Simulated assay, not measured.
Amino acid sequence: MLQENIDKEIKTAMLAKDNVRLRGLRAIKAAILLAKTEKGGSDTLTEDAEIKVLQRLAKQRKESAEIYKTQNREDLYQIEAEELEVIEGFLPKQLSREDVIAVVQDVISRTGATSVKDMGKVMGAANKELSGKADGKTISEVVKELLS
Rank of each mutant, 00 (worst) to 15 (best):
142 V>M: 10
111 T>S: 09
87 I>R: 10
32 I>P: 02
20 V>S: 12
48 D>S: 08
40 G>Y: 11
38 E>S: 15
126 A>N: 05
32 I>T: 04
139 I>E: 10
135 D>K: 06
8 K>Y: 14
93 K>A: 00
128 K>R: 10
91 L>Q: 02
141 E>M: 11
80 E>Y: 06
111 T>M: 10
75 D>V: 12
83 E>S: 03
132 G>K: 00
138 T>Y: 03
12 T>H: 04
50 E>H: 13
88 E>P: 00
148 S>W: 02
131 S>A: 13
47 E>D: 02
146 L>N: 06
33 L>Y: 04
119 M>L: 07
33 L>A: 00
126 A>K: 01
70 T>G: 00
123 M>R: 02
102 A>G: 01
126 A>T: 01
57 L>A: 01
117 K>Y: 13
58 A>E: 15
145 E>N: 01
111 T>I: 10
135 D>H: 09
5 N>E: 14
31 A>G: 09
122 V>E: 03
30 A>K: 15
119 M>R: 09
134 A>V: 15
84 L>N: 01
61 R>Y: 15
55 Q>K: 06
40 G>N: 15
94 Q>E: 14
30 A>L: 14
6 I>H: 02
10 I>P: 00
61 R>Q: 06
98 E>P: 03
106 D>T: 07
49 A>P: 06
135 D>C: 09
9 E>H: 09
66 E>Q: 13
56 R>Q: 12
30 A>V: 12
123 M>E: 03
67 I>N: 06
99 D>K: 15
21 R>Q: 11
56 R>V: 07
73 R>V: 04
75 D>Q: 00
107 V>R: 03
92 P>Q: 11
11 K>V: 13
100 V>I: 13
108 I>T: 12
144 K>E: 09
57 L>Q: 12
51 I>S: 11
50 E>F: 05
135 D>R: 10
80 E>G: 04
147 L>K: 07
145 E>A: 08
68 Y>M: 09
49 A>G: 07
74 E>I: 01
73 R>N: 13
113 A>E: 04
123 M>L: 02
134 A>D: 13
6 I>G: 05
144 K>L: 05
133 K>Q: 09
46 T>L: 02
135 D>I: 11
32 I>V: 12
99 D>V: 06
127 N>R: 08
107 V>F: 12
35 A>N: 04
59 K>Q: 08
32 I>M: 12
28 I>R: 04
113 A>G: 02
133 K>S: 07
40 G>W: 11
132 G>M: 00
9 E>M: 10
9 E>A: 07
49 A>M: 06
39 K>L: 13
132 G>V: 05
5 N>H: 15
113 A>H: 05
30 A>E: 12
79 I>P: 00
40 G>H: 05
23 R>H: 15
109 S>W: 04
65 A>N: 03
40 G>I: 04
46 T>H: 03
47 E>L: 05
114 T>N: 08
32 I>N: 02
14 M>N: 00
121 K>R: 08
114 T>Q: 15
41 G>C: 04
122 V>Y: 04
